[in-house]
């Protein structure tokens, strides 16, 4: 079982059935199921989620990208700070990045107030955090490789030579 092909397929559409995946890879369904389990057990696949276009959801949903600067000391490393921040359910994504700041956080909340409150009351007070910059997401055009919006119609002739 070629695990890279399996991952390619799942990253494109994780809801495909094991049978359909097997058909496309020319493999046994059992072999695909076993490979999937292995990928999960090895921590390669950490979960399967829906890609939501929040523009089409009635309820308000606010997202912000937060840049966080930290100051390390002898006892505290990035890992430790990250573990603390990652625990908050409001934090959807947390990455250590190169460049002008240290952590990139994606925060989700029901309102701008909730999100800014979260940053000022939960993130900023962490002793190692020296600075935060919050960017509210105003619109999104592509998520997880999927273009949002209406897309283009297939304008090919329905039957052609």
């Amino acid at each position: 079982m070629d695990k890279q092909s399996l991952l390619d397929l799942l990253r494109h559409d994780a809801r495909e059935s094991v049978d359909d995946i097997a058909r496309q890879l020319g493999a046994d369904a059992e072999a695909v199921a076993a490979a999937l389990e292995e990928l999960e057990d090895d921590g390669v696949i950490r979960g399967y989620q829906a890609v939501v276009d929040w523009n089409n959801v009635d309820e308000e949903h606010v997202r912000a990208q937060v840049e966080v600067d930290v100051e390390l000391d002898r006892e505290t490393g990035y890992e430790e700070i990250a573990r603390r921040i990652a625990r908050f359910p409001e934090v959807a994504t947390l990455r250590l990045v190169s460049g002008d700041y240290d952590f990139f956080i994606e925060v989700e909340g029901a309102s701008m107030h909730a999100v800014s409150n979260f940053v000022s009351e939960r993130i900023a007070p962490i002793p190692e955090v020296t600075k935060t910059v919050t960017h509210f997401v105003m619109d999104s055009y592509k998520e997880e490789g999927i273009e949002l919006g209406d897309g283009d119609d297939d304008d090919r002739l329905s039957v052609s030579p």
Partner: peptide, 17 residues
């Protein structure tokens, strides 16, 4: 092609491109 054009919501596996 003309037959297919008259059908709504057609899924086409007839395309040569």
């Amino acid at each position: 092609f003309e037959l297919a054009e008259e059908v709504d919501d057609v899924i086409s596996l007839g395309v040569g491109e």
